[in-house]
Amino acid sequence: MIKLFSLKQAKKDGESPKAGTQKKASAAQLRITKDINELNLPKTCGTEFPDPDDLLSFKLIICPDEGFYRGGRFVFSFKVGPNYPHEPPKVKCETQVYHPNIDLEGNVCLNILREDWKPVLTINSIVYGLQYLFLEPNPEDPLNKDAAEVLQNNRRVFEQNVSKAMRGGYVGSFFFERCLK
């Protein structure tokens, strides 16, 4: 049994000679520090920290070197909230991309970003998940239904559409900004 000797002493406001003088880093902060320090990026990925003191907000840049999206440069924004890792970071694709699992508003359909997120997963897991999306776009559970249908019915046309979009131009009625490296 723990005896809290202090309890019956009157406390004095704001004065404690022995106490530490700083608020400790939050658990979320400690955890993200670890995640970032241990980032083990594939060679096609890089990170950009606009403010190195703020590890909770950064960008991931993926430049695939194979597959449909080879030669493209895709930027994702990461926002890590105070409830990390209980809740996943919010990730958005900032580059317009013609992709079955990414819609034109930048929403990304990746299971570990929503329903399958677990606190044991890390930023690294998400990076690998995103990288995989560019290697193996999945037409089965699409966000951009048009792109998914084209991929399913005619891979050549899909390939042409992807490069058209990456070069900058219209696919259907939507104009894509150029995003070649």
């Binding site: 209980h86 809740e87 819609d103 990304v108 359909c109 929503r114 997120w117 559970d141 699409p142 239904k145």
Partner: peptide, 12 residues
């Protein structure tokens, strides 16, 4: 954890 649904489910 908060209940979340797959994005592709809610979209399609």
């Amino acid at each position: 954890p908060q209940v979340t649904f797959p994005l592709c489910t809610i979209a399609n």
